[in-house]
């Protein structure tokens, strides 16, 4: 038996139009050109605005000779570890919290106000408290970054669980799904696209919190490198550190998008 319905192939993944990419590249080149021009014509003191060449040289110096007690790779490794450890811990905590808020009135009653309390707080506001409570070790740094990541993960999980359709939930209930099976088989998978979006937002929040976290007695890390350079007005190294953080954030964003495409292929098609 065959279907006579018109077979419409699923839409191909939307490709970015070439001119859009070209426009992006042109914008970056334009900013670098303007920056070179400003530095070359002496519109600003090199202490405030070093030329791109000097920033590149600082980057190479940090990569080969090191800066602030470590090479660039070691700084990157320390920062990556903190951000990824914070992301892992926050996912382990935030997704269950989101599921509880979305599926239980008691859970929502208890946890929702706490998340709403944490959500608008700037990391620098709770940083001193975390130092007092948790000391100056590695857990404090991870905690500061993790707290900044928590709200996006929780909120995206709650929103994702609500994306499961009533008929999908009823279909599972009709087959005798227990509450746990309903969460595992329907709500959590339905929430995954939203959780991934939350992860991407959380990762962005994590990178923006990195410098604050590495204020706490760090000896390595990009935030520490930037702060050390800032203390001595080594502006080229400050800008080099900023560019490395931006590059890492961009790479992690693309990596998450690739994972999403690989493991959640139904997004936009179902």
């Amino acid at each position: 038996m065959t279907d006579q319905t018109l077979q419409i192939p699923p839409a191909a993944p939307r490709r970015q139009m070439p001119w859009t990419s070209l426009l992006g590249v042109a914008t970056i080149l334009g900013v670098v050109a303007l920056w070179s021009l400003a530095a070359g014509l002496g519109w600003a003191s090199p202490v405030f605005l070093p030329a791109p060449g000097r920033v590149w040289a600082a980057l190479m110096r940090a990569a080969t000779d090191g800066y602030a007690n470590a090479t660039l790779l070691q700084h990157v490794g320390a920062s990556l570890w903190r951000v990824m450890a914070a992301l892992g811990c926050t996912m382990a905590l935030g997704v269950p919290i989101g599921l509880l808020i979305a599926t239980s009135r008691v859970g929502r009653g208890i946890l929702d106000p706490l998340i709403e309390f944490i959500r608008p707080l700037p990391p620098l506001a709770y940083l001193p408290l975390i130092i007092i409570w948790c000391g100056i070790g590695e857990p404090s740094k991870i905690l500061v970054i993790g707290l900044a990541m928590l709200a996006p993960i929780v909120i995206s999980t709650v929103s994702g669980v609500r994306a499961a359709s009533e008929s999908q939930i009823r279909a599972a209930r009709a087959f005798g799904a227990t509450r746990g099976q309903l969460v595992r088989e329907v709500m959590l998978p339905a929430a995954l696209p939203s959780i991934f979006t939350g992860m991407r937002i959380a990762l962005g929040a994590g990178w923006t919190t990195l410098v604050a976290a590495e204020l706490v007695a760090a000896t390595r890390g990009l935030g520490y490198m930037i702060q050390s350079a800032a203390q001595f007005l080594v502006t080229d190294m400050v800008i080099a550190g900023i560019l490395v953080i931006s590059a890492l954030a961009t790479v992690s964003e693309f990596a998450l998008r690739a994972i999403e495409r690989r493991y959640l292929p139904w997004i936009g098609r179902a």
């Binding site: 279909a171 799904a177 088989e185």
Partner: peptide
């Protein structure tokens, strides 16, 4: 209850499962 199965207007399939795993859902549960 499992003695009453429901077919929905919007098919209510689970796009994160392959076709065979959708059909086998009740058995898995």
């Amino acid at each position: 209850g499992a003695e009453r199965a429901v077919v929905f207007q919007d098919d209510a399939l689970f796009p994160w499962r392959r076709v065979e795993d959708n059909v086998a859902l009740a058995l898995k549960l």
